[in-house]
Simulated assay, not measured.
Amino acid sequence: ETSPLETFLASLHMEDFAALLRQEKIDLEALMLCSDLDLRSISVPLGPREKILGAVRRRRQAMERPPALEDTEL
């Protein structure tokens, strides 16, 4: 079974970092709390770090402002 972290990383084509994050005991919830400095400290290179942090920001925004639900009943 694929973890939420693995699914998140796969959506970014960053599956290669799953093992490193697991080694550091970082799941998706913890990744959502990580800063640039945190990821730098575990040797995530600049390019992937920026992509991951950008996706984290977008996910955080989506979670804070979920889309309005529409009634599909006529």
Rank of each mutant, 00 (worst) to 15 (best):
P45D: 04
E24A: 14
R22C: 07
R60H: 03
I52W: 07
L37G: 04
L46K: 11
R22W: 11
M32W: 00
V44S: 10
T2V: 13
K25L: 11
M63F: 00
P67M: 08
V56W: 04
D71Y: 03
E73G: 07
F17H: 13
L28D: 07
E6F: 13
E29C: 02
S43Q: 09
I26Q: 05
R40Y: 09
E50Q: 15
S3G: 01
L69G: 13
D36S: 14
V56N: 03
A18V: 12
K25D: 15
D36G: 01
R65S: 13
L20H: 08
P67V: 10
E1R: 09
R49G: 07
L20T: 15
I26M: 12
L69K: 14
P67E: 12
R40C: 07
D71Q: 06
A62E: 13
A19Q: 15
E15M: 03
D36C: 02
D36I: 00
A18N: 10
P45S: 08
R49W: 09
I52M: 11
E24I: 01
R22Y: 12
E29I: 08
P4V: 06
K51F: 09
E64F: 05
F8W: 07
D71G: 04
R22A: 13
F8G: 06
L39E: 10
P4K: 10
L31G: 03
M14F: 05
L21D: 04
H13T: 09
D16M: 14
K51V: 09
L69F: 07
E24M: 08
S43F: 01
D36H: 10
P67A: 11
S3K: 10
L37E: 14
L33K: 13
P48Q: 08
G54A: 08
L31E: 02
L74M: 01
K25T: 07
L5W: 11
D71S: 08
E24R: 15
D36T: 10
P4H: 04
A30H: 05
A18C: 11
L31P: 03
L9A: 06
E29D: 15
D71R: 06
R57K: 10
K25M: 09
A62R: 12
R59Q: 14
I52H: 06
S41W: 00
H13Q: 15
T2Q: 14
C34R: 09
G54Q: 11
R58K: 12
E70V: 14
E6T: 12
